[in-house]
């Protein structure tokens, strides 16, 4: 659970960073002249929170196979898109402008989701490298004393 919470927090803060960027890009493209108050600063955090809710729903302690994992990820992404679009555009009139904005938001959500997962993978790569470094130290410290010493001394070809 502790590992999972750590992972969720990582995803949350990475998402918030990208949501800020997405809001900047989408805002400049769709409504460049619009003015905002200070309340705008809370929105990336709210969107970030909405983004992690589906992760809590699809969470499992079972060890998933790769197809099961991919299905869960697709389901999670779909839920995030639906929740995000519902939160942002819920109650708004359906017109061309809203549809364009909803598509923009959906694409942004997908891009952010992929980026968060790619960054997560690079963080795992770093974890793996750290584990390998620790493992090398461990193996050199412990050493396969008997086997190593014996096998290195036996004649070649055996």
């Amino acid at each position: 659970m502790k590992e999972y919470l750590k992972e969720m927090l990582n995803s949350f803060f990475i998402s918030v960073t990208f949501i800020n960027l997405a809001m900047l890009v989408l805002g400049l493209l769709l409504q460049p002249d619009r003015q905002f108050g200070y309340e705008i600063f809370i929105y990336p955090l709210i969107y970030g929170l909405i983004g992690i809710i589906p992760g809590l729903i699809v969470r499992t302690d079972k060890e998933l196979s790769i197809p099961q994992f991919v299905i869960r990820k697709v389901f999670q992404l779909t839920l995030i898109v639906v929740l995000m679009v519902a939160f942002i555009f819920g109650g708004s009139p359906v017109n061309e402008r809203t549809i364009a904005a909803a598509i923009g938001v959906s694409v942004s959500v997908i891009i952010i989701y992929v980026l968060v997962n790619v960054i997560g993978w690079f963080m795992d790569l770093k974890t793996a490298k750290n584990l390998m470094n620790d493992l090398k130290v461990y193996q050199s410290q412990i050493g396969e004393t008997v086997e190593k010493e014996l096998m290195s001394k036996v004649p070649h070809g055996h």
């Binding site: 998933l64 196979s65 790769i66 993978w121 795992d124 790569l125 974890t127 793996a128 584990l131 493992l135």
Partner: peptide, 9 residues
């Protein structure tokens, strides 16, 4: 040890 695609190593 390497990361796998499914969140494991």
């Amino acid at each position: 040890i390497k990361p796998a695609l499914n969140g494991r190593f």
